[in-house]
């Protein structure tokens, strides 16, 4: 599915953009995704560092991806290769922030949700896995993964 609206889209998709999405998707489910959490563009280099960190992003525990220097990548989730071509920036952001909205059974942690969690360890209470700026950095990086 092609990206719509101005690139990189930072504002709430207009009704026209949403309609365009619907048309291009051939009438398939129109998933709008989420708008920017900060209104500022993310830093793709910082985003890559977060994605490859097994302490911050945790991504490679489950996902493989185009990171030749990283060994022992997981296979619990789809590869990140090409994800920027398959999903829009808004859709990527939605999956990061709270993938459970799309699939209640997903093993993808909600990187920007703090409600509804059970027995969170004291070191992690009261804050999401990633801060808003970090989410934007990761999204800015993931949209660059086109192949």
């Amino acid at each position: 599915m092609r990206r719509t609206g101005s690139a990189p889209s930072r504002r709430m998709p207009s009704a026209r953009a949403a309609l365009l999405v619907l048309l291009l998707a051939g009438g398939a489910r129109a998933e709008e995704g989420l708008p920017s959490l900060t209104g500022e563009p993310g830093d793709a280099a910082r985003g890559r560092a977060i994605v490859t960190s097994r302490q911050r992003g945790l991504c490679l525990l489950c996902h493989a991806g185009p990171f030749p220097e990283e060994r022992f990548q997981g296979d619990l989730a789809p590869s990140l290769a090409g994800v920027g071509a398959r999903l829009t920036e808004g859709q990527l952001r939605l999956r990061l922030v709270d993938g459970r909205r799309l699939n209640p059974e997903t093993i993808m942690p909600s990187y920007y949700r703090t409600e509804g969690l059970v027995r969170v360890g004291p070191a992690w209470q009261g804050r999401p896995i990633l801060a808003a700026g970090e989410i934007e950095d990761v999204v800015a990086f993931l949209v660059t993964l086109r192949d």
Binding site: R54, L58, L60, L61, C62, R71, F72, Q73, G74, D75, L76, R100, I107, P109, S110, L117, V118, R119, V120, G121, W124, Q125, I129
Partner: peptide, 28 residues
């Protein structure tokens, strides 16, 4: 079966649904 923690995962999600797959390099 209860999802817990900041990562919001249950034992069943790994050990029933994903046994045999790999968390990083480790087989579950």
């Amino acid at each position: 079966r209860e999802r817990r923690g900041q990562l919001d995962l249950s034992c069943a999600q790994c050990h029933d649904a994903n046994a045999g797959r790999h968390l990083a390099g480790s087989p579950i």
